[in-house]
């Protein structure tokens, strides 16, 4: 045991998750999402979840799967426009949504993981986002107080891990994954490859294994593409 965090199944990945918990899901659109844990949650009877994720998946994939099953009570996101089911549940009142500017969302999570309860930002000043929030002027510029976010579980996706949970991300699939890893009481990393201890160059590690509690490796990530655009010839 010790620092060995490798698990074998997606069921182990979601072990301990209960209804009404707050969960973070990494990813931007469908890029870099923890597919396996979402699939396992869909199979479970867990519901009434508060989900913190930049987006809400699409119909039939990503968090769209949990919406389909009505397992989500509240979403904290910056952009949810790709999901018809989401619109229906939101308009019927079945789903609560807290729209948060993307940078504020990222910083709320970063601050949460770093033990900082809140921070001031200029983002949203003069808009609906600022309503009811403390305003403060620094050097003549107005800022609002935003409170940080933490989660019971954070589900993230990386490319490569060693058994201690040191992670390497791939390209733009890092997005929210690295910060969310720091803000989960328990963090589960889904990875495409697990290498031997010592094989990762410590200089090149993107996220220290201290933030990762469980590692699930899989060979068959779907990695669906939302907008397949190719160069005109």
């Amino acid at each position: 045991m010790g620092f060995n965090k490798i698990i074998k199944t997606a069921e182990e990945a979601i072990e301990g998750v209960q209804s009404s918990m707050t969960l973070m899901f990494g990813g931007f659109g469908l890029c870099g999402i923890p597919e396996k844990s979402i699939a396992a949650l869909k199979k479970s009877s867990i519901n009434n979840l508060t989900c913190i994720s930049n987006n809400a998946g699409v119909d039939g994939f990503g968090l769209g799967l949990l919406l389909e099953n009505k397992q989500i009570k509240k979403m904290i996101s910056s952009y949810v426009g790709e999901n018809k089911l989401f619109a229906e549940q939101f308009l019927s009142g079945a789903l609560d949504v807290e729209l948060t500017p993307q940078g504020t969302l990222a910083e709320k999570i970063r601050a949460g993981g770093a033990g900082i309860p809140g921070f001031y930002t200029a983002t949203g000043v003069g808009t609906k986002v600022a309503e009811g929030k403390e305003h403060k002027v620094f050097n003549g510029r107005t800022f609002i107080l935003e409170e940080s976010l933490l989660a019971d579980f954070a589900f993230i996706k990386a490319q490569k891990a060693d058994p201690y949970g040191n992670l390497i991300f791939n390209k733009t699939a890092e997005n929210f994954n690295s910060v969310m890893a720091t803000a989960g009481k328990i963090t589960i990393a889904e990875v495409e490859e697990i290498v031997e201890l010592g094989e990762l160059d410590p200089n090149q590690i993107h996220l220290s294994g201290i933030y990762v509690d469980r590692i699930l490796q899989a060979d068959d990530f779907e990695k669906r593409i939302e907008q397949r655009t190719i160069r005109g010839l």
Binding site: S78, Y79, G81, Q102, G103, T123, V125, T127
Partner: peptide
């Protein structure tokens, strides 16, 4: 209308 969200626009314009 159905609100899709502000994404990163508020952060971009404010700073």
């Amino acid at each position: 209308k159905m609100v899709k969200g502000m994404g990163g626009a508020m952060d971009l314009v404010s700073s």
